[in-house]
């Protein structure tokens, strides 16, 4: 069996904000099709790690590669779901328009939505169960619904790598379960990196995981299988689940 290509590679990355490093000497390799859970304390560097993957942050030192290219070059292949807290919920915007943002192409030229774009948006809204609310203002949705629209927008980009920043934040258990069902149906069809405080939920979804606290400590996920996942923070075990394929490549130092 030939080894899968790497979707994400971080080599000796040191990164942060201003002159203050949040991550130091961080190494990470993630194979295509894996689902990486990113957990850790606030301020530990979860969003920094995700910002590096999406290309919103540049490392002080080291290298970040997405499918062998820089994140900036690979942006067209990355779907991104930001933290909801950063968005202006009073913005005059319908569910359909928000989802259609994912269909924008990277160009300086003016662009309009084509019929294929509209069809893709309708399909995605149906998939996340919000087709009937397409014309509704985003401000009128519940938090759980908003997260699903943002997931639809991220998927509208037709990504190879899906980066989700705390998708379950602020939503009730029922909505979180529904979101998790949607995410679990994506596992295997694309590479997924998801930062979360919901350690139990994310552990059942992920095929591997890291705890981020100024560096990376690997742990293994469950990948939706029946066996219970290993505890977060457990030392990496190169023979457990699907993790061994790249376990040796995940690591970090504080």
């Amino acid at each position: 069996m030939s080894p899968r290509a790497n979707a994400v590679t971080l080599t000796g990355v040191r990164a942060g904000y201003g002159a203050t490093p949040v991550l130091s000497e961080t190494n990470l390799t993630l194979a295509s099709g894996e689902c990486l859970a990113v957990t850790g304390p606030n301020g530990g560097g979860k969003s920094t790690l995700l910002g590096l993957l999406v290309g919103l942050l540049r490392p002080f030192t080291g290298q970040v590669e997405i499918h062998g290219s820089s994140p900036r070059r690979a942006r067209g292949r990355i779907g991104y779901l930001p933290q909801a807290a950063r968005l202006d919920l009073e913005f005059p915007l319908t569910v359909r328009d928000l989802t259609a943002m994912g269909r924008l192409r990277s160009t300086w030229l003016p662009q309009r939505l084509r019929a294929a774009d509209r069809a893709a948006v309708a399909d995605l809204l149906r998939w996340v169960g919000l087709a009937e609310l397409a014309a509704r203002p985003v401000a009128a949705l519940s938090t759980g619904q908003r997260r699903r629209v943002l997931l639809a927008r991220a998927l509208a980009t037709e990504p190879d790598l899906l980066v989700l920043d705390e998708p379950e934040a602020g939503i009730d258990a029922e909505s979180a379960e529904r979101l998790q069902q949607l995410l679990s149906s994506l596992i295997g069809s694309m590479t997924v990196v998801v930062a979360s405080h919901d350690i139990e939920g994310i552990a059942t979804l992920a095929t591997c995981g890291v705890t981020v606290d100024h560096g990376l400590t690997p742990w293994s996920g469950n990948g939706g299988q029946d066996e219970p996942s290993r505890g977060v923070g457990d030392p990496p075990d190169e023979t457990d689940g699907r993790f061994p394929e790249h376990a040796g490549a995940i690591g970090g130092s504080v």
């Binding site: 999406v54 290309g55 919103l56 900036r72 942006r75 067209g76 990355i78 991104y80 930001p82 950063r86 968005l87 202006d88 913005f91 915007l93 328009d97 928000l98 259609a100 943002m101 994912g102 924008l104 192409r105 990277s106 300086w108 003016p110 662009q111 309009r112 939505l113 927008r153 980009t157």
Partner: peptide, 26 residues
């Protein structure tokens, strides 16, 4: 009229516009 959609994305979610490689600074 010509740049409505990029302006919409940039105005609502600058990070998403950056992640789509839209010309955010221009």
């Amino acid at each position: 009229v010509l740049y409505y959609r990029p302006l919409l994305v940039h105005s609502f979610d600058r990070d998403f516009a950056l992640s789509r490689n839209l010309p955010v600074f221009p």
